[in-house]
Design a protein around this nucleic acid. Structure first.
Lengths: 253, 253
DNA sequence: CCTGAATCGGGTACGTTGTACCCAGTAATA
DNA sequence: TATTACTGGGTACAACGTACCCGATTCAGG
């Protein structure tokens, strides 16, 4: 029941940690730190992957085998830690694929699919409430890649931003609707199928009441057979269809 | 720091309350209930509007002027209460406007704008994590209206669902990105302008590092001057542009 | 090598959350 | 009037984030 929020902590501290330089600290008195910020972030992600967004700081500490309060030596608080986790997730793993031959549409599709993959791997991302966009090195790299889609086109700067945030938000919106259901967590509430079985009698009675005109006309049993990814691709494809003529018009001769 | 979740409570209890009949209870011993479920839901919405999604059950009780635990006589828990609040919000206020002359596009736009309005009026809606779609009388009515957009068209049932969830999710995604920032709440983190002022030096340094190829090419200061509603309309318009040919093809007769 | 100072790790504790539980008061039935 | 079911309120508990303190550790300066 914890509601993590991004960009809600002290932004200055978050940014310092995000863009932290890896310069070796000058020799200082006192014991050497046993942990690093990176290890804490990795551990926190591992815990969140396992326990969902309601992961606790005590859990992260336990994962690292240290006392509950120890990680507070490295990170000012949970909010800032989440900022770090979010940026870390958006890091592109693996080597750069050959993007040379890709057009604007393939690149935007890649952006969407990559973002989708991140949500699929770390569903707890969907449950944290991003308050302000906290740009770190990794999310910045993602944004930079997104901009590459417009190379060779003269789309106005403002519209580029509109398109990129459109794609991101469209993926996030769909992911939230569909992917969040699987978060194990407390989960006494059975699976998808059982859920509709519980709801069905109420819906049936509502339909039979005649209060609604259009629901209840569905005859095709396949009407509800939609996977999360299919839903995302449908919005994305229609959006890109609609964007296509504008991109054509903006193509640089 | 509370993370409310929809569809996470006992679904059976939520549904019973959502579709509750208003038959007068048979005369029973004991004091008459001082509250009603409806009053509790309204009060909870009022509190959430004022305090954000991290509203507490004690706050709702206080709003109603009763003891902390009293509302648990009417509602099994916070999760179920949120289910009720969500459905209540999606109730259409005011009288039915004349929809007769509206085409499919206007109707889907109306759906989007209505949903947008709900998020604008109740930003805490964006912070609750909808686990499963809990259909109540009011959200069902909204879905029914959405289906009216396809009258006179032979779009497959499955695609109708894809379109409706697409529009909903696209609005939700954009609203989450933009509208959540204004939630007053703890808010020591200043306004939009100050936030970018804090972030700017880090971004500038990142750009100057040469690590990124495309960011930093933005010259137009207006590139970032995007309102929440403009962003939503942009996705919506492109999506509907892309949907248009398919609707044309499906037009009956 | 020894001393002082700065830092680290861990334990304790507080405030806030949702809510389980108990008890006293109330009103309809017999 | 006695019984009984139900109501409202207060207390209390577990889990959360985290403020605070203290002993242990390791550097710099003598």
């Amino acid at each position: 029941m914890a509601t993590p929020q991004t960009g809600a902590g002290d932004p200055q501290r978050s940014l310092e940690l995000l863009w932290r330089e890896f310069e070796p600290q000058p020799s200082r008195p006192g014991p050497k730190p046993r942990l690093t910020v990176d290890r804490i972030v990795e551990a926190a992600i591992a815990v969140a992957d396992r326990e969902g967004s309601c992961f606790g700081m005590r859990g992260v500490s336990a994962e690292l085998g240290v006392g509950a309060m120890t990680i507070y030596r490295y990170v000012p608080g949970k909010k800032e830690l989440i900022d770090l986790m979010v940026d870390r997730i958006s890091r592109f793993e693996g080597e750069e694929p050959d993007l040379a031959g890709l057009g604007w549409r393939e690149r935007l599709e890649l952006l969407a699919e990559g973002s989708w993959q991140a949500y699929d791997d770390h569903p707890w991302l969907l449950e944290i409430n991003q308050r302000r966009p906290v740009f770190g090195p990794d999310s910045m790299a993602g944004y930079d890649f997104a901009l590459s889609a417009f190379e060779g086109h003269d789309l106005p700067d403002r519209e580029m931003n509109l398109v990129i945030t459109a794609v991101m938000n469209l993926v996030t919106g769909t992911a939230r609707q569909y992917l969040m259901r699987d978060s194990a967590e407390e989960a006494p509430e059975a699976n998808e199928h059982e859920w509709w079985e519980v709801q069905a009698p109420y819906l049936d009675r509502a339909i039979e009441s005649g209060r609604y005109r259009y629901v209840g006309r569905f005859k095709d049993e396949q009407a509800w057979n939609i996977t999360a990814h299919q839903a995302m691709r449908y919005v994305l494809d229609r959006f890109l269809d609609g964007l296509a003529p504008r991109m054509e018009a903006a193509r640089r001769g």
